[in-house]
């Protein structure tokens, strides 16, 4: 299958679906929205957007996409989660609401709303040595922090040492939103380093 252009799914239950689609459009990568279990068929990768993690969790169970997403992740489908998407990929959560579940895939502990409320939300630039080049532009919006990266590779940290990006095999999760700031390099790297190798 090498050389075939990838098709990426964007989980479209709630959240900043449009911004991820705009990044994929800018990178000239085909994509479609995923709501129901069958929507995952034939995809080469899945993006879990920002939004409210507790809401996306509930809707994934109500609309029966949860089991298919979980088994796709376990089966090795490349996944990129931003903010709520990172929360949904974490095996362990701090600050979850009663009954909140995650898809899992990242053997890490993530704390929701770890910076506080919206007045603590911020823009910055952040070094991502794995990606290389100039620091990437990042928006942290009521963002989570990875409190224990476990066995995952750390992709990004803040100056105070807080871990805000990890990779474990096919799963990449970051606390921040490159997509709302028009930053395309994180997606480009994920496509080249995680999605393309999995196609071979």
């Amino acid at each position: 299958m090498a050389g075939k252009p990838p098709v990426i799914g964007v989980l479209a239950l709630q959240g900043d679906v449009r911004e991820h689609e705009q990044v994929l459009d800018a990178l000239d990568v085909a994509h479609r929205q995923v709501r129901l279990a069958g929507d995952l068929d034939g995809l080469d990768g899945l993006i879990i957007p920002g939004g409210e993690s507790s809401v996306i969790d509930k809707l994934s169970r109500i609309f029966d996409s949860r089991d298919a997403v979980v088994s796709a992740i376990r089966g090795g489908m490349p996944v990129l989660g931003t903010c709520a998407g990172l929360i949904l990929l974490a095996d362990t959560l701090v600050g979850a609401i009663d009954g909140q579940q995650t898809f899992g895939g990242l053997p890490v502990t993530v704390e929701r709303n770890a910076f506080g409320g919206q007045v603590e939300s911020f823009e910055t630039v952040i070094d991502m040595p794995t990606i290389g080049g100039e620091p990437v532009a990042a928006a942290f919006i009521r963002a989570p922090i990875i409190r224990d990266a476990g066995g995952a590779d750390v992709l990004a940290t803040l100056p105070n040492g807080d871990v805000v990006g990890v990779r474990f095999g096919n799963c990449v999760g970051i606390s921040f939103h490159p997509e709302v700031i028009g930053e395309t390099r994180v997606h480009r790297w994920w496509l080249d380093a995680v999605v393309t190798p999995a196609q071979r």
Partner: peptide, 23 residues
Amino acid sequence: MAEKTVGTPLVKSGLAEMLKGGV
């Protein structure tokens, strides 16, 4: 090292982007 800037227009409108599709 890079500075954090709070309250930018992008961070303000960004939270609303995260609420899309919701009630």
